[in-house]
Structures are given as structure tokens and as C-alpha cells.
Design a protein around this nucleic acid. Sequence first.
DNA 1: ATCCCCCTTCGAACAGTGTTCGTCTCACGA
DNA 2: TCGTGAGACGAACACTGTTCGAAGGGGGAT
Lengths: 233, 233
Amino acid sequence: MTVPPPPWRSAPRRRAAKPTLSQASIVRAALIVLDDEGIDAVTMRRIAQELETGPASLYAHVSNKDELAELMLDAVLADILVPEPDPAQWDEQVKELVRDQIQAMAAHRGIARIAWDIAVPVTPNSLKQGEGMLALLRAGGLSLRQATFAGDALSLYAKAYAYEASGWTWGEIDQAEAGERGRQMVAYMRSLPPAAFPNLLQAGEFFSAETAKERLEFALEAFLAGLKAIAKS
Amino acid sequence: MTVPPPPWRSAPRRRAAKPTLSQASIVRAALIVLDDEGIDAVTMRRIAQELETGPASLYAHVSNKDELAELMLDAVLADILVPEPDPAQWDEQVKELVRDQIQAMAAHRGIARIAWDIAVPVTPNSLKQGEGMLALLRAGGLSLRQATFAGDALSLYAKAYAYEASGWTWGEIDQAEAGERGRQMVAYMRSLPPAAFPNLLQAGEFFSAETAKERLEFALEAFLAGLKAIAKS
DNA sequence: ATCCCCCTTCGAACAGTGTTCGTCTCACGA
DNA sequence: TCGTGAGACGAACACTGTTCGAAGGGGGAT
């Protein structure tokens, strides 16, 4: 129960006590909230609270929550460094870049979801990643057209995998829920004629969080092998 | 301004006038709203309004909005028929199945977004699709392990592509906005040293809604070619 | 035939969301 | 010293998913 300040003493407002608001500080605070409490906690009110202010104050530096999301993604993408293309090992470089992109996004659980909501990524670091990928693919001998299509598919897959990965690494609660779902699934499949899902029943063992990395490597291997076959013709 | 009914005449409540609520009818109404007004309009209140009732009434047949979303996705997936595996043309069958999945999802713009939010798809038609894909891949000579990983990658890509596609086919407003974004991007890239984005600047022409189908075919071609190379070894 | 119980229906409300409006206050240039 | 304009912010709006409790009616048991 706080007491209103005495009216005879105009409350000394110390403005410089807290660092002044800025776009960068808002993005930083949003990422902190994201990492600490998950994507659902990233609300304008929660971000404002982190900065010890009100939600309306944010709109002076950020026009939208969508724009803020885009800035968050761009900040995360800034950490990924794109390599200088080396034609001798371009395929390994492509794989590594995809791995790095995924790792950067998965490091902030839920950020991959944001990436999906952005139709046309025009943010500086998005462009840097796109250009870097294109350069690698062209170093592999692909035409510009082929490189464009391949880069599109790879970035699509990277976003997809990162999104899935951020779901797995959430925490124990979701782990338990996922396990529950898995058991439901097996029970349902067993309740049907055994011949209904012969492959899927056995496939269950390969489809766990442990095999996530293997699944990624398999997909990269297959796609790049196909890319080389196409590039030759 | 409606007048309350006369108290001496007990208002004859005709219950059978509107078809009784059911899970199926709710899902149907939700899909109608989705197709007519987009994913943002799919709210419990709007669905209830479509059925001429209140939002609370829905919760007798659907425990959650998430569960409703899962049911919607399952209903959409029901339209896709999985082929009988033919080892002679398994690769073309795989491509066709992916195309069908994408088409079914893209037909209801926004449904692909739902697919992403479902961690472990255990719904009957999801399982049917998964089993069908696995059967096709095994017919191609892949081991169960390889088939599992390949099927995972393909379904990931299908969801990703469908989500992107539903964004493009939205309407003129988003088309205009996307064009605006594209122009911003080009302007930004031109404002930098021309050598900064040499590939990306030229790639822009290949990256439009018109080339969407080509991008899909390219990705399928590359991945399946790589799959065959892996299967042999 | 009667009664009772339980499932369905639904109006009202709650907590929370993004966003806007108008006011207030401060730091800086003239 | 005095505007002045940009940033801060309290309050409110429209909207969301969801819950509660009171009705209502149909079907099974007596």
C-alpha cells in the first residue's frame, strides 16, 4: 500500500536514472524475456515491465509488435558469420551455414516461429544470410537460377528444422506431453488392425529427440547429393 | 430494439429449427470461416456466430481451440488419397503425394500454420499420410531408418512450402504489400556498395509467385535424386 | 406414466492481449 | 529565457480464449 507523494514537494523525477529507451534496448529486453520465459511471455507489457515503463512507451521506437519481432530475428541472425566461398569444399560450407543458422535460431526457443510470420525478409542480416548462401551455391557450379531455387529450399528447411527443434528443447513439461502423445499414438495404432500401420509402428523408435541431429544430416546429405547430380547435367 | 415476449404465452422454443451442435458441424463451420475470411477471423466467437450460438456452447464438443485446430487439419488431410506403392515408379509417386499434400493445405489458406503448431501429429489422417509416405519410400528400396528420415524431411518441406504458398495466394492487399517490401529491399540493396549483394540483386527476378511451382519441382527433384544416390550405397 | 438426472446450451464475466489517445514533462535550440 | 517538439505514460478500447453457474430438455429407470 503506497502513499501518494506529499503535494508540497514536487516529486523529483530523475530521468537519467534508468538508461533512456531506444530501439536497441527494447529488442535486447525482448530477447531476454524470450530466453527466460518463452515466446508466450513476450508481450508488449512484459517487455515494458522489463524496462520499467509502460507498454505505450514502446511505440515511440517500434511501430508494431510485428516490426519488433522482425528486429528480434535480425538481431539473432547477426551472430551467424557467412564464410568466404571455397569452390573446393562448397558443399561442406553450405551444410555448415545451414547448421549455424539452425543453431542460432534454436538458441532462442521460439524465434523460428517469428521467422515464419515474416513474408519477405528484407532485414539487413536476412539479406546477408541470403547472399552468403547464394554465393556458396554459385561457387558449387550452380546457375543463378538453380542457386536461387536451392537457396530457397535450404532456408525453408532451416526454418522448419529450427522451429521443430525449439519445440523439443523446451523443457520437461513439453517433453512429458510429447511422450504422452507418443503413447497415445502407439495405443491408437495398436487398436487398429496390425496391418494398417506396419511401417509407422516400427518407425517410432527412429523418431525421437535423440535422432534429431541425424535427421538433419540425412536431409542435408540427400539434398546436396541431388544438387550435385543436377549441377552436372 | 426487440420486445420481450408476452409472459402469458410461454415462448415456444424450437430446438430442432437449427441442426444440433456437434463436433463435426463445428469443424465444418470453422473451415467455412477460414476459407471465407482468413485465419485471423477464425475465433471461437466467429465460429459460434456461424452456428447461431454463443462461444461457450462450443466447449461442450471441443475442449480447446488447439484441439479444434487439430480437427480442422485432420479434416483437410482426409481429402488426400495415398496411392498403392508401385516400385517401378515410386519416386514419381512420392512427388505426387507431396504435391497433393501441399495442394490440400494451400486450398485452405492458413491451415498450414496450424500444422506447425501441432508438435506430434497423432490424428488419424496424419498417421495415414505418414504411413503412406513411408510405404512409398520403402518401395524405393530405402531402409526403414532411411525412409523415416526422408519422410520427416519431406513432410517438413511440404508444410513449409504450403505455409509459404498460402501467404502468396492471400489476396491483392498482401500482394501489394509484398511488392512494396520487394521494392524496399531492392532500394536498400542499391543504396549499399553494389558489390555487397551481387547475387541477391539478380536473384530477385527468379523469386516471385510465378516461379513457386518451379521452386517446388526443383526441390523435389534434387531431394529425390539424392535419395536414390544414398539408397544405392 | 412419471420422475429424475445428466448432458447440452448459453448469458455473463474474467484475465489478458495489441494498440491508440491525449496529456504531461523534459531537454535542447533560438 | 523562452518556446517547442519529441519522448514518456496513464487510461482506455476492442478483442481474444476460456470458465462459471443457471437454466433447459430428452432419455432411461422406476
